[in-house]
Structures are given as C-alpha cells and as structure tokens.
C-alpha cells in the first residue's frame, strides 16, 4: 500500500511536468502568433470573402455570376493569361540559365556584369512597364530606332492580340529574370567542379556535360523557379495595364475592370475565384511534377 502511494505521486509529478513541456512550446508558438494571425487575417479571410461573395446574387446563393462570366471575355482572358505566363516563364528561364552559366565562369568584368543583370531586380514593375512602353511604341520608339539603324524595317508592335501579348511577355523579363538567375546560380554553384573534370576525362563533350550534369543538378531549382515565378506570372497586373490596357484582356485586367464599376463587382469576384483556382491547380501541378521532394524539406 505504501509503495503504491509512492508510485502514484511519482507519476502524477511526471504527468504534470510533461504538460509543462508542451507549455514551453506554446510560448514559442505565441511568439509567432502575431505574424501568423496577421497573414491569416489579411489573406485567408479576404480570399474566403471573395469566393463567398462570388456565389451571392442579391444575398442568395447563385451561380449567376459564373454563368455570365464568359460573356465578359473569360475564356479569352484565361487563354491570354496562359500564353503570357508560359511565354514569359520560358524567356526568363532561358535568359536566367544563360546568365547563371556565364556567372560560373571567370571572365574580365564579371563583377560589373553581375551588377548589371541583378540591378533590375530592384526596379519597380511600373517603372519597367513605363520604359518598355517607350521602347515598343507603335510609331517610332526605341526598338524601332534600333531596327532602322541596322537597316531593318520598323515593326508595328501593337498590331494584333498575339503581338500585344508578345510585348507583355517579353517586357516582363527585365525585372524578373534576375531572381530566376540567382536561384539557378545557387544550384550551379553547388555542383562540384570535379564532377565536370571527371566527365571531361571520361570523354563527355560540352553538350553531354550540360545534359548529364548541369541539368539534373538544377532540375529541382528550375521547378522551384517555375513555382515562385509561375505564380507571380499569373498575377501580373501593372505591366499589361500600362502596355496594353484592357485589350486584349488577361484575367487580372478582367478582374480589375469589373471591380472598378460597382454594378459588375460580383463578376470580378467570380473571375478572381477562377484565378485563385488556376493558381492553386498550377502550384499543385508543379509541386507534384518536380518540387515535391524539395518542398517537403
């Protein structure tokens, strides 16, 4: 009996202290709580509000907003958004890979070079949009100035939807390539140079070394870049707004155009919900394809 009592008190003590350990962790969670609450309050709740409002017509649940969306140019704007995003991503990946690979090599002026290609990272999107609007002016403009100086014919840049979108997707490279280049450069610098030397000794040419060593090494980083940049690409707003206005429409300009008129605001909520879905689908796709392992870390 005496032993039993002793055991009991011992174990209740243990239980009490166990609770204390979780309480210690709770303190650390409390440190993080303001930031987490801020992010939830200002993003999840608004996002839920948007989705909720998109299903409301005169206070009642309805799919009306979605049923009229196509007549506001939904399908074209989704197509245009995809064209711009995919095109811009490709341009940025290729340029970034070139920059990252060049930065791996020693050459005179490499410091100045890396400054020049990284500085645009800090440029405001709106400044970039303004400058490219000066470069790609329909009549005249600096791009045509270059073409004419080299004896080519000037181009009417904003002549069709496709060329309009082309200008947007190209202009996006300036501000956003540096980040992709920095990510890829991080991947390239982690490859041991001895690996390349060994491959050279084994008779692998430059192309084989690229496909067998470089690409596998940076494949996970490419998927990270695709995720980070791809999501932002779906969100581009200032650039198309300045360069092409509302014609042709992309999803973001469609959302904004309808938001700015009170009568069509529910339409903008529905379009925003569609954009949210596309971005979620894209993120899941990229994570499943390539980044899942990295992401899990």
């Amino acid at each position: 009996m005496h032993i039993r009592m002793h055991m009991d008190s011992e174990f209740s003590g243990i239980r009490e202290r166990r609770f204390k350990i979780t309480r210690k962790y709770l303190v650390y969670v409390l440190f993080a709580l303001p930031a987490i609450a801020y992010v939830i309050g200002l993003s999840i709740i608004p996002a839920i509000t948007v989705v909720y409002q998109s299903f409301l017509v005169a206070g009642k649940f309805s799919l009306y907003n979605y049923s009229v969306l196509p007549s506001y140019g939904l399908y074209a704007s989704i197509g245009n958004t995809l064209i711009v995003s995919v095109g811009a991503l490709l341009i940025q990946l290729i340029l970034a890979l070139a920059i990252a690979m060049v930065m791996m090599k020693p050459f005179a002026g490499s410091k100045i070079f890396s400054s020049i290609v990284i500085i645009p990272f800090g440029i405001s999107t709106i400044v970039s949009a303004f400058i490219f609007s000066l470069i790609f002016t329909n009549v005249g403009g600096f791009a045509n100035g270059v073409l004419v100086a080299f004896g080519f014919k000037p181009v009417v840049w904003f002549s069709s939807s496709i060329s309009d979108l082309g200008v947007v997707m190209f202009s996006d490279f300036w501000k956003n390539t540096p980040l992709v280049a920095l990510i890829l450069y991080g991947g390239l610098s982690s490859v041991s140079p001895t690996l390349y030397e060994a491959a050279s000794v084994d008779g692998a040419g430059a192309f084989k070394r690229f496909t067998h060593i470089t690409l596998p090494a940076i494949a996970p980083l490419i998927s990270i870049a695709l995720l980070v940049r791809g999501v932002s690409e779906f969100n581009i707003f200032a650039l198309p707004l300045v360069l092409i206005g509302y014609h042709p429409l992309i999803l973001n300009t469609l959302i904004y155009e309808n938001y700015s008129t009170l009568a069509t605001r529910p339409i903008s909520y529905a379009a925003a919900t569609v954009l949210l879905l596309i971005i979620m689908a894209y993120s899941i796709f990229v994570l499943k394809i390539g980044g899942a392992k990295q992401y899990a870390k």
């Binding site: 992010v39 999840i44 608004p46 973001n252 959302i255 925003a272 971005i279 993120s283």
Partner: peptide
C-alpha cells in the same frame, strides 16, 4: 503555410482588403 499564403493572387486579396 506562410509561403502558400504568399501565393494568393494579389488582386484577389487586395480587393476585399
């Protein structure tokens, strides 16, 4: 979690905010 939140489209969130 914080980064997933960061991927929310800016315009979608900015409007209700």
């Amino acid at each position: 979690f914080l980064f997933i939140i960061n991927m929310m489209p800016g315009l979608v969130i900015a409007i209700p905010i």
